[in-house]
């Protein structure tokens, strides 16, 4: 009989109702994942099986001048990953900074207000960020870029800034919670050696929070990868493998492309869009797998 705490878990677990409930919940999640995968594969089939000639019946596929489905998808994949990674590179340091400020530097009242503001920002719908991007950020940047890049500057750079602004709140609130949980013992160890506050953060807080920060970053990256409305409004779409983030009409993300073409797409077109959706699905898996690998190797190293 296993007794942990005041409950007799053994007996409780074996009770039919509880056991079924727990099992059902777990199965539910797995089933949903499975169902989504099946749906994507099923819907994508017509496009995957179609010949090049068949696909040329889709007007936007034709004008993309792609040679096959892979050729069609790859520039989208490139832009999606580029814009999201750039957004993460901008967002992560800012998020860590804000989290450290709230947890270790701000007076309690200011910290409470800052936390509250972050939580509110996290819940703002993405289309609002998109509107902010086109009506506020673009004209603002236009003052500096003027005739250098297109007017208004609806380019990947601007999009990445907006994406970064969108994902900062989520990453910050997760990291803030992690940093707050830094074991007091580790903090004392650093101070006891004569560390300043920043040195203590470097010694005790950042290493402790590294794995959690990685997870938070992956969560933020996921949101950036799937962002649709902001892309639709801000980014002027195009197809290329250009790293020039200031080049106009050079990039389009998978999600943005789906939203742009879906309303007018015929059934083969919808199927082709689903193929790109499937690709995005796979990218998300790969990103998660890579993140776990990196996190594991970080811990095992020591």
């Amino acid at each position: 009989m296993s007794k942990i705490g005041i409950f007799n878990w053994h007996r409780l677990f074996k009770t039919d109702k509880f056991y079924l409930l727990v099992c059902a919940s777990s199965l539910f999640v797995l089933i949903i994942l499975f169902a989504i995968t099946v749906f994507l594969l099923f819907s994508a089939m017509p496009a995957l099986e179609s010949s090049q000639t068949g696909l040329l019946g889709i007007s936007w596929y034709k004008s993309s001048e792609a040679n096959n489905i892979l050729d069609f998808c790859l520039p989208l994949v490139f832009s999606t990953i580029l814009s999201s990674l750039l957004a993460l590179v901008i967002a992560l340091p800012v998020s860590i900074g804000v989290a450290l400020f709230i947890t270790f530097y701000a007076p309690p009242k200011l910290a409470a207000i800052a936390s509250w503001v972050i939580d509110i920002l996290a819940s703002i719908p993405s289309i609002v960020y998109g509107l902010w991007g086109i009506f506020v950020l673009c004209p603002f940047l236009n003052v500096f870029t003027g005739n250098l890049i297109s007017s208004p500057p609806r380019v990947l750079f601007t999009l990445s800034i907006v994406l970064a602004v969108m994902i900062i709140p989520i990453i910050t609130s997760i990291i803030r919670d992690i940093y707050t949980g830094t074991p007091h013992l580790d903090i004392e160890a650093a101070y006891g050696l004569g560390a300043t506050k920043w040195e203590m953060i470097r010694l005790s807080v950042l290493p402790y929070g590294a794995q959690g920060a990685m997870s938070a970053a992956m969560l933020g990256l996921g949101r950036a990868l799937g962002e649709t409305m902001a892309v639709l409004i801000i980014l002027s779409p195009g197809r290329s493998y250009s790293f020039n983030i200031f080049g106009v009409s050079s990039h389009q993300t998978i999600a943005g492309n789906i939203a742009a073409q879906f309303p007018e797409a015929n059934s083969l077109g919808v199927s082709l869009l689903t193929v790109t959706g499937l690709v995005l699905f796979i990218i998300t898996f790969l990103v998660n797998w890579a993140a776990k690998k990196i996190a594991k190797s970080g811990v095992a190293n020591v």
Partner: peptide
């Protein structure tokens, strides 16, 4: 798409 990069969409 060959002239798309010269314009905004």
């Amino acid at each position: 798409s060959s002239i798309a990069s010269l314009s905004q969409g």
